[in-house]
Design a protein around this nucleic acid. Structure first.
Lengths: 122, 122
DNA sequence: TATAGTGTACCACTACGATATTACACCGCA
DNA sequence: TGCGGTGTAATATCGTAGTGGTACACTATA
């Protein structure tokens, strides 16, 4: 799964699961793989996956069924979206604007770069 | 100086010194404060400042005079600018574009936000 | 030559991330 | 009821990053 060395693995797994949910690969209300399955497929220790699940559970994104496993919460999509918008406004945007001003990068540069990005994706 | 808990202090100090250089508060060729001065004024250990200086020295941004102190290198401005543009293109922009697509944020939102940012700054 | 200022090397401590192993309590289903 | 699947809790260990404390070598200058 290509872990970045800069961020803790358990956070990257949690983010990755959120991605899967947002992209519909994990249905709302559906079950997600067990901690042991994840540990094996990602070649990671069980405890590491447990920490990822704890984050998501605390955020209300997944819900536990004792003895059965974890399921995607009904409100998962809203919660993930809300959290990401918050982080975008609080971290990504201010940093972007600061760099733009410091480096003298115009809005036109950003816009044309975005168009290239969209073309490259599809 | 308000350190973020997410990034190591010595990196934040290095970035901060680069800011000072780019904004002309430290003149090219001029001397920067000693490790002990920084340690006292930032309420940080000497070694922490030393690590910051090591980064800047390795990048060629500051130069050492044995027994005297550190000085801003002649090419400092070019080096800092080049490094920041690289990081902007390699990290900030791709992350921005990815979030925009995922969250459905338009270029117009970015542009109008930037105008508000500029007005708020001055 | 002293002295006070540089940077630096060395060692220690702490926190954190990740791993490894084990044992436990719960649930579904044959 | 028993088995195999869930998650969980506890403990120990390892490596590394970040920071701190101290003593040292060097240079400028009076």
């Amino acid at each position: 799964m290509n872990f970045e060395p800069t961020k803790p693995i358990f956070r990257q797994i949690a983010d990755h699961i959120c991605d899967e949910i947002m992209q519909g690969r994990f249905a709302v209300g559906g079950r997600i793989p067990s901690v042991r399955e994840y540990a094996v497929s990602l070649e990671v220790n069980v405890n590491t996956v447990v920490r990822s699940f704890e984050i998501l559970q605390n955020d209300g994104i997944i819900v536990k069924d004792r003895g059965v496993g974890f399921f995607v919460a009904d409100e998962a999509l809203d919660i993930i979206r809300k959290k990401r918008v918050e982080r975008f406004n609080a971290e990504v945007l201010p940093n972007l604007y600061r760099q733009m001003r410091l480096l003298g990068i115009s809005c036109d540069d950003i816009v044309s770069g975005y168009e290239r990005f969209l073309n490259g994706q599809q």
